[in-house]
């Protein structure tokens, strides 16, 4: 579905991506985590065709990405700037459907169906700004769903909502994935979220970003906000991802001297006796 090889990108002298290699299979839900400012968004924008990377290759469904691929949708973090405030929720969801053909009635029906899928059947006639943040993000997800992409990219989709809403939206993504089977790449800085939602967690180093970890998540399905999070495997994986994000090698104890040297801007871990 998605193949990324030796992807590099620089903004002038600043190198954001330092050779990223990543393959995502059909139907997978892959979470990409990394420290803030590590180039996660640059990666997503190059996959989505919004940015022309300076080097390397991105293939979506075997074809190199030159502009935004037809079968791809993006859910942005900032829903208030991605939904159009001058259109109703239904218009926002159905606007992109013109590209998929069909008459006005079938587009409207598809929009209603997508809104039902995200649990907002009553919001169709409202304006986005009449809804709460979490509901607006649901609308953005509905818009992507109605578009029926083969690949859905989500850029920190729950970064601007409160904790409770965040959990609801995480479950919504899982449910959407189960019912539609689409491939999803979700970018987040939240380690717990990546383990909870993903089939796989890919860890990026700080910039210039490279893949420093690629872990398969094998947790019992369906996942549950309480039970999954106290599962020993979850706890273990979370610690593992956490270490990788902080720039330590897998299995290494926290606060090893070289780890601190590697990521001086990370907050210092509790001091361990020097060897």
């Amino acid at each position: 579905m998605l193949e990324i090889s030796d992807l590099t990108h620089s903004y002038g002298a600043y190198q954001a991506l330092g050779g990223v290699n990543l393959t995502v299979a059909e139907g997978e839900l892959v979470c990409v985590v990394g420290p803030s400012g590590c180039g996660k968004s640059t990666l997503l924008r190059s996959i989505g065709g919004l940015l022309r990377p300076t080097g390397g290759r991105v293939l979506v469904q075997g074809r190199p990405v030159e502009k935004v691929p037809d079968d791809l949708a993006i859910v942005f973090q900032d829903y208030s700037r991605s939904l159009f405030p001058w259109m109703t929720v239904a218009d926002n969801v159905s606007l992109p459907l013109r590209r998929r053909g069909g008459d006005r009635r079938s587009r409207a029906a598809a929009a209603v169906e997508a809104l039902e899928q995200v649990g907002l059947p009553a919001a169709a006639g409202k304006y986005p700004w009449e809804l709460s943040g979490g509901m607006q993000q649901r609308v953005a997800i509905a818009r992507a769903l109605a578009y029926k992409p083969a690949l859905m990219l989500m850029d920190e989709p729950f970064g601007s909502v409160d904790a409770q809403t965040r959990e609801d939206l995480e479950d919504l993504v899982l449910q959407v994935r189960r019912s539609s089977g689409m491939t999803i790449v979700l970018i987040t800085h939240d380690i717990d979220e990546s383990v909870y939602v993903g089939d796989r967690v890919v860890v990026l180093s700080k910039s210039p970003a490279t893949v420093v970890g690629d872990l398969r998540v094998e947790l019992p399905e369906p996942r549950d906000q309480i039970a999954t999070r106290e599962h020993p495997d979850f706890v273990h994986l979370r610690a593992e991802v956490g270490r990788l994000v902080r720039g330590m090698r897998s299995g290494e104890p926290a606060a090893a001297p070289e780890a601190e040297a590697a990521s001086p801007e990370q907050e210092p871990a509790p001091a361990a006796p020097k060897a």
Partner: peptide, 19 residues
Amino acid sequence: QYLETCEVFGISRFRRLTR
């Protein structure tokens, strides 16, 4: 981001302008 949204969802030039 409005324009990027248009790009992602393949909204035609005419609609991009009017809508």
